[in-house]
């Protein structure tokens, strides 16, 4: 079950970026998986470099988060590209992000090649926790905690800050917001970058426990997509709940009837789309 929660935390980070961008800009960003993958690769590179340069290994968590944040610098230019078609049909926006998926796939191959990349030895630096017969790597708990913290932080950002109020205003009625003097292009740029950062940080955070490979982005899109559909498009709470549902459901399927591991998720997705098309949590928070 804890495995499911760990998986959920990862999914949440990736899906949260997707949700934020959809909630405000109404763009379903297929490239969110690519940001996640980029974050993973960049995280490996930066940590390997830092450790090689003599940084103390226990600092790797900070370096990973830093790498995710640094990488979010690709947000504004990508948003600039998307901005050219904000007034177009959503279908075009979806397609443009599909174009980004194709391009990022090769960008990763160009810079990092096809071989999997991993951080060999930092996973267990924070030790393991023994609970009865169970052994849990502390890092898993760190990731779960990071997921929860980021969820809380984003929630706080959106509900308690001036920035959050602006974002919600823009999400509710962009024209009105603009009429009231909100600099929409700047706001969109920031929101998008925040969305990218959630993805890249997510990718970077998970990497000590796994390895970066080329198709992780494309694979993740499908699951992140399941998360947002189940949770409800554009809702942060939905992303949180959806990630938990998908993660735990997968864990339960693996424990009880492994054959249903993947199929079960699609069945749930379709059931939700059919019964509650707006998702379990229609957009409220974002």
């Amino acid at each position: 079950m804890l495995g499911g929660v760990f998986h959920a935390a990862v999914l949440f980070l990736a899906a949260a970026g997707l949700q934020l961008v959809f909630g405000v800009q109404k763009i379903l960003n297929l490239a969110c998986g690519s940001f996640y993958a980029l974050g993973a690769y960049f995280g490996v590179s930066l940590v390997t470099w830092a450790l090689g340069a003599g940084a103390p290994p226990s600092l790797f968590l900070g370096i990973l988060i830093l790498s995710g944040v640094l990488l979010a610098a690709i947000g504004p230019p990508v948003e600039r590209l998307l901005r050219t078609i904000y007034d177009r049909d959503e279908s075009f926006q979806l397609l443009l992000t599909f174009a980004l998926v194709l391009m990022f796939e090769d960008v990763i191959r160009f810079f990092w090649g096809t071989a999997p990349h991993q951080l060999g030895s930092v996973y267990l630096i924070y030790g393991q926790l023994k609970v009865g017969a169970l052994t849990i790597p502390v890092y898993n708990l760190v990731v779960i905690a990071a997921g929860a913290t980021i969820a809380a932080a984003v929630g706080w950002l959106l509900t308690r800050t001036r920035f959050g109020r602006l974002v919600r205003a823009a999400a509710e009625n962009p024209r009105m917001a603009e009429a009231l003097g909100i600099d929409l292009p700047r706001l969109y740029s920031r929101v998008f970058t925040l969305g990218v950062a959630l993805g890249t940080v997510g990718g970077a955070l998970v990497i000590p426990a796994t390895a970066a490979m080329n198709e992780m982005g494309i694979e993740l899109i499908v699951e992140a997509f399941a998360v947002v559909v189940i949770g409800g498009l554009g809702s942060m709470r939905g992303a949180f709940a959806g990630a938990l549902i998908v993660g735990v459901l997968k864990a339960v399927a693996i424990a009880i009837y492994p054959e249903l591991e993947m199929l079960g998720i699609y069945v749930i997705v379709i059931a939700v789309l059919v019964l509650r098309p707006a998702g379990l949590f229609a957009r409220a928070a974002a």
């Binding site: 499911g4 426990a209 796994t210 198709e215 992780m216 864990a251 424990a255 591991e261 993947m262």
Partner: peptide, 22 residues
């Protein structure tokens, strides 16, 4: 006792490992 079938390209086995541990 158990046979698990993660998809090719899976990058997270925490749930599988838990099932194996059990």
């Amino acid at each position: 006792v158990v046979d698990l079938w993660p998809k090719l390209g899976e990058t997270n086995f925490t749930s599988h490992v838990a099932a194996l541990g059990q």
